[in-house]
Amino acid sequence: MRTAVHDRGGVAAIEFGIMIPLLSLMVVSVTDIGLALYRKMQVENAAQAGAQYAIVRGFDETGVTSAVTAATNSTAINASPKPYQFCGCPTSSGVSTVSCGAVCPGGAQAGTYAMVSAQGTYYTLINYQIVAATYTYSAQSTARLQ
């Protein structure tokens, strides 16, 4: 009995057994964060792909929507809200909407723009109880066509 009290054999195995769930949770959590960031980048790239389509081929709602969904292999990404075309003037804070044919404050004609939006949902790998189980990412891209 005295030797059993001072015996240290198997202590490493017991410590490993205690630590492996914590280490596994850490690995899954880091992977989950990486996948969530990747989904966010996919949504941003899909919105940019739709705007690039409108620049190259002209504004076509169906074509732009197809470009957004085809930009990634994820079925969780879509063009929402629908892409639209508008006339506007560039300002320091973005593009202000004006009627087509209007003259901008700088004296130039109002340009034609396309606004493309993409939206995607990410579902976490496990339910962490302290954070949401789903995240919805959205991105917009505005491009001048003329």
Rank of each mutant, 00 (worst) to 15 (best):
residue 2 R to M: 12
residue 4 A to M: 06
residue 5 V to R: 06
residue 8 R to N: 03
residue 8 R to A: 00
residue 9 G to L: 06
residue 10 G to I: 08
residue 13 A to D: 12
residue 13 A to T: 14
residue 14 I to P: 08
residue 16 F to L: 14
residue 17 G to S: 11
residue 17 G to P: 13
residue 18 I to G: 13
residue 19 M to G: 14
residue 21 P to M: 02
residue 23 L to Q: 02
residue 24 S to H: 02
residue 25 L to Y: 04
residue 28 V to C: 13
residue 28 V to I: 15
residue 30 V to T: 10
residue 30 V to M: 14
residue 31 T to N: 01
residue 34 G to E: 09
residue 38 Y to P: 01
residue 39 R to I: 02
residue 42 Q to I: 03
residue 43 V to E: 08
residue 45 N to K: 09
residue 46 A to F: 13
residue 46 A to C: 09
residue 50 G to M: 15
residue 52 Q to P: 05
residue 54 A to R: 08
residue 57 R to M: 08
residue 59 F to C: 05
residue 59 F to H: 10
residue 60 D to R: 04
residue 62 T to D: 12
residue 62 T to C: 06
residue 62 T to M: 10
residue 64 V to G: 09
residue 67 A to E: 10
residue 69 T to Q: 04
residue 74 S to R: 10
residue 75 T to L: 08
residue 77 I to E: 04
residue 78 N to F: 10
residue 79 A to S: 15
residue 82 K to Q: 07
residue 83 P to D: 10
residue 86 F to G: 03
residue 86 F to R: 05
residue 87 C to P: 06
residue 89 C to M: 06
residue 89 C to Q: 07
residue 90 P to V: 02
residue 90 P to S: 06
residue 91 T to Q: 12
residue 93 S to C: 06
residue 94 G to I: 01
residue 94 G to T: 01
residue 95 V to C: 04
residue 95 V to E: 04
residue 96 S to L: 12
residue 98 V to P: 00
residue 98 V to F: 00
residue 99 S to N: 15
residue 101 G to F: 08
residue 103 V to L: 11
residue 103 V to S: 14
residue 106 G to M: 10
residue 107 G to A: 09
residue 111 G to N: 12
residue 112 T to N: 14
residue 114 A to T: 03
residue 118 A to N: 12
residue 118 A to G: 08
residue 120 G to N: 05
residue 121 T to H: 00
residue 121 T to K: 03
residue 122 Y to N: 03
residue 123 Y to M: 01
residue 128 Y to R: 01
residue 130 I to K: 03
residue 132 A to Q: 10
residue 132 A to C: 04
residue 134 T to I: 02
residue 135 Y to G: 00
residue 137 Y to P: 00
residue 142 T to R: 13
residue 143 A to E: 14
residue 143 A to T: 11
residue 144 R to V: 01
residue 146 Q to S: 14
residue 146 Q to N: 13
